[in-house]
């Protein structure tokens, strides 16, 4: 049974199929939306909202990647949430400096991973989104271009700068060699 089959079953009231989809994709959605929004709590809300929307979204054809379909719903919700909580223009590189570790960072046990999370969170928004879609959700460059509406070349360069910035910062801190 594919994820699409499970979805159809869930739409017909099959509780087991619903749970199966949840088990398979929930964590990925939370990681991705947490990376984008910087909040684990928000990420859980967004992931659950994504699943609820999944049940009612019109689907023209069920041949593409189910994961991409679901993560696109979550990505759009995360964007909306970001706009809601941080209105106004924010230029690339002008992220707000936080004073201490965020709740998201605090929930990470390993010191190294915490440093990595902080480096990712301090990336410019545009780079962080591409980073989340590529490394956390596992999308192809073409899928990301389609989801974000930016050219594939731009997706690649944003990802390159995102990773380079993180590496530089972590090397500076002595986390990476």
């Amino acid at each position: 049974m594919t994820d699409w089959d499970y979805l159809n079953a869930a739409r017909n009231g099959d509780e087991g199929a619903w749970r199966m989809l949840f088990r398979r994709h929930y964590a990925m959605l939370v990681r991705m939306t947490a990376t984008i929004t910087g909040s684990a709590d928000t990420a859980h809300d967004l992931a659950q909202e994504s699943f609820v929307r999944l049940l009612h979204s019109p689907i023209r054809h069920q041949e593409g990647s189910f994961k991409a379909f679901l993560s696109r719903i979550a990505y759009n919700l995360a964007l909306k949430e970001k706009r809601r909580t941080a209105p106004g223009l924010r230029l690339e590189g002008q992220e707000l400096e936080s004073d201490g570790p965020s709740p998201l960072e605090e929930s990470i046990w390993s010191e190294t991973e915490r440093a990595i999370a902080r480096a990712i969170q301090s990336l410019p928004v545009e780079q962080r989104d591409v980073f989340a879609l590529r490394f956390v959700a596992g999308h192809t460059y073409e899928e990301i271009a389609d989801m974000t509406g930016i050219p594939v070349g731009t997706v690649k360069s944003r990802l390159f700068y995102a990773v380079r910035t993180c590496r530089d910062e972590l090397k500076r801190q002595g986390v990476f060699t």
Binding site: A10, G13, D14, E15, W18, R19, F22, R23, Y26, A27, V30, R31, A34, A40, H44, Q48, F51, V52, L55, L104, S107, I108, W109, T112, E113, I116, A117, I120, F131, R134, F135, V136, V163, C166, R167, L170, F176
Partner: peptide, 20 residues
Amino acid sequence: QVRQLGTVSFPIETPDLPLP
């Protein structure tokens, strides 16, 4: 290192959300 960047994880408990 790139792999490490992509696998930062925090504890995620999958909730038991009943089928709406």
